[in-house]
């Protein structure tokens, strides 16, 4: 008993070191006063952050990425709501295979999706643009949204909906007044997850980016130049803080939802 406990604790300790090593090094190098990303450390500086401020292409790439992520989040959540509602509330012919097909991108390597979309766009003679990236991102984000939203919809007592109809409300108002408020925490979580996945997605954007890069495509381009690396560390630090802030916001909404309704109905973050 004791041995096993001690082994597990040691294992967890080492595992956490392994897990956090890169995230820990990120701010260390972001504030390191040296143009080479390596040890030993030189001194403290914030100049890499000011470099970011004056890098115009970075701003363009970031703006592209945010725009893509927002549109992706909205559409994949919309598709997710429809699919999650359909599969958790209704029995229809072919439900399992239809859902399996829609969820497929979750286990498909992203390179396959990138390649196949590239083939279609080129064969049909379309131009690569930010919209081609958005399409690809909606495709891969929708399954994650469905996973989150399904648990929100499944925790919904079907009687609540019937009670509303029984009390004389229309179907649409039932959705608006009863279902939507109760799955709202799930919808917020879904929007944030899709936003975060899209913001960080590289492969599909790499294959489908035309002349306008996204943030990860821009970062990929910069990784080749050693002198750019310290400012990338600063960028990574900012992205980490933004992501954690988004997660905490999502968690706040989830908790508020639980407090408000007294039922756990949101689904986790992953």
């Amino acid at each position: 008993m004791k041995n096993q406990g001690r082994f597990l604790k040691w294992f967890m300790g080492l595992f956490l070191v392994f897990l956090y090593a890169p995230a820990f090094l990120l701010p260390v190098f972001a504030f390191n006063d040296s143009s080479i990303v390596s040890f030993p450390l030189k001194g403290f500086t914030t100049k890499w952050f000011s470099v970011l401020q004056s890098t115009e292409p970075l701003h363009i790439a970031a703006r592209n990425s945010v725009m893509i992520a927002v549109i992706t989040a909205v559409f994949s959540t919309l598709f997710g709501v429809l699919a999650a509602r359909a599969s958790s509330r209704f029995k229809f012919p072919g439900r399992r295979s239809i859902m399996g097909f829609i969820m497929l991108p979750m286990v498909l390597p992203e390179i396959i999706i990138g390649v196949s979309l590239l083939v279609v766009i080129i064969q049909l003679g379309f131009e690569l643009s930010l919209w081609s990236i958005i399409m690809g991102h909606i495709l891969i984000c929708t399954p994650f949204c469905i996973a989150i939203l399904s648990s929100a919809f499944m925790n919904l007592d079907q009687n609540l909906e019937e009670a509303s109809i029984d009390l004389g409300q229309t179907r649409w108002n039932t959705f608006r007044l009863v279902i939507l408020p109760l799955v709202m925490p799930g919808i917020v979580a879904s929007l944030l997850i899709a936003f975060t996945i899209s913001l960080d997605e590289f492969i599909i954007a790499f294959f489908l980016a035309g002349t306008e890069p996204t943030l990860p495509v821009y970062i990929w381009g910069q990784l080749r130049f050693p002198q750019k690396l310290p400012s990338l560390m600063a960028l990574g630090t900012i992205l980490l803080i933004v992501s954690i802030a988004l997660l905490l916001i999502a968690d706040y909404f989830r908790r508020r939802g639980i407090r408000k309704t007294g039922i756990e109905n949101s689904g986790g973050f992953l």
Binding site: L160, S164, V178, L182, K260, G262, I263
Partner: peptide, 18 residues
């Protein structure tokens, strides 16, 4: 159902939690 002159008390009561 929403136009019938009947109302129902559900087994789970179906009280709107929000």
């Amino acid at each position: 159902a929403n136009q019938r002159p009947t109302n129902m008390v559900f087994q789970s009561y179906a009280i709107f939690p929000h």
